Computed example of a mutant assay.
Amino acid sequence: MDADQRDLANPFGMDTDCRNCPALAECRERVVHGYGDVGGEFLVLGESPSAGAEATGVPFTGDAAGRRLQSLLGELGLSRSPPDADEPELQNVFCTYLTRCRHPERAATDEEVRACEPFLNAEVRMINPEIILPVGQRALEALAVAYTTRSPESFDVATEHATTIRGRGFELVPAKPFAEQTEAETDALREHLLENVLARDYRQTKGRRER
């Protein structure tokens, strides 16, 4: 963790009363911004907060899917907390979403995703991760537009789950939504990260800042 980081929750002080999407602002419980180590070399990107994450205010917590990811982060040495922690002690990883507000009855619209792009772009720019784990098809397609040479339509998260895709300045390791993964798929993701990412020098020669 960067020495000057004071808080894992919303460390960049992003707007917690954002009202750019009126339909979401009227029904949300809270805005769920990114959480984790601002010096992290790993970034986990989901589509939008689950009911559990909205309740805790922390991405990928508060439900079974969150516990599955947090357990994985612990096994990778990226978390010092038990999987059911509402505020996990993360190191070298940052978790965030395409959209920061949850609608209880539907997915975010394309317009709502675009409204949140400045938040995500700022986080990616300031964190400058080496590895991004897009969780779900929508997160994978969103990254494809800006950070790969492939068209979004060429990606399928189910077939590219637990593989590595070269991006512009970092690598992508796609993952199916944790609520939909079988135990075998979670095992495959863990093994890929341990054997094909963490076991080698994944850092790219792009002028990483000194830590």
Rank of each mutant, 00 (worst) to 15 (best):
Q204C: 03
P134A: 12
Q70M: 07
P177R: 10
E123V: 15
R125E: 15
Y202P: 07
G169H: 13
A184V: 10
A23K: 07
T148E: 09
N92A: 02
M14Y: 14
D15E: 12
M14T: 02
H161M: 05
V197S: 07
G46Y: 03
A115F: 05
R138F: 08
S81T: 03
D17M: 13
H161C: 04
L140A: 14
A115Q: 03
T61Q: 01
C21W: 06
E195W: 02
E117Y: 13
E130D: 12
V32W: 02
F170S: 04
L69M: 12
R80V: 00
L90Q: 01
H192F: 12
A144V: 04
V113K: 04
Q91V: 14
A179T: 12
L189Y: 07
A64I: 10
K176Q: 13
L133R: 00
P82Q: 12
E26V: 10
V197G: 07
E141C: 11
P88G: 01
V145W: 13
Y147A: 04
K206C: 09
L198T: 01
A107H: 09
A115E: 11
N128A: 15
P59R: 09
R125W: 06
E111N: 06
D63Q: 04
R106W: 08
C18Y: 14
D84Y: 15
A146S: 15
R80Y: 10
N92K: 00
R208W: 13
E191C: 02
V157R: 01
L143P: 06
G136Q: 07
A9H: 14
L76C: 04
K206P: 02
C101W: 01
S154I: 00
C21E: 14
P59S: 11
P152E: 04
L8R: 01
E41L: 14
Q204Y: 06
R102C: 09
S50E: 08
T186K: 01
A51V: 14
L193R: 00
E185V: 07
M14F: 15
V113T: 12
R168H: 07
R150N: 10
V124S: 02
L133A: 03
D7M: 11
I131K: 05
T56A: 07
E87L: 06
P129S: 06
E54G: 11
L133Q: 01
R168C: 05
P174T: 07
A85P: 01
V58I: 15
S81A: 04
F170R: 02
A144L: 08
A162N: 03
F42R: 01
R125I: 01
P22V: 13
E87T: 14
I132A: 06
A142C: 11
G74T: 10
R30M: 06
F155W: 12
R200S: 10
G77H: 09
T205Q: 14
R114Y: 07
E111F: 05
E210I: 12
T182L: 11
P152F: 05
H33T: 11
E47L: 12
E54Y: 10
E185M: 05
T148D: 07
L24P: 01
R200H: 13
V124Q: 05
A23W: 06
G77P: 09
L72Q: 07
T99P: 01
L43E: 03
C27W: 00
G167R: 07
Y147H: 15
E130C: 03
L198S: 00
P118N: 11
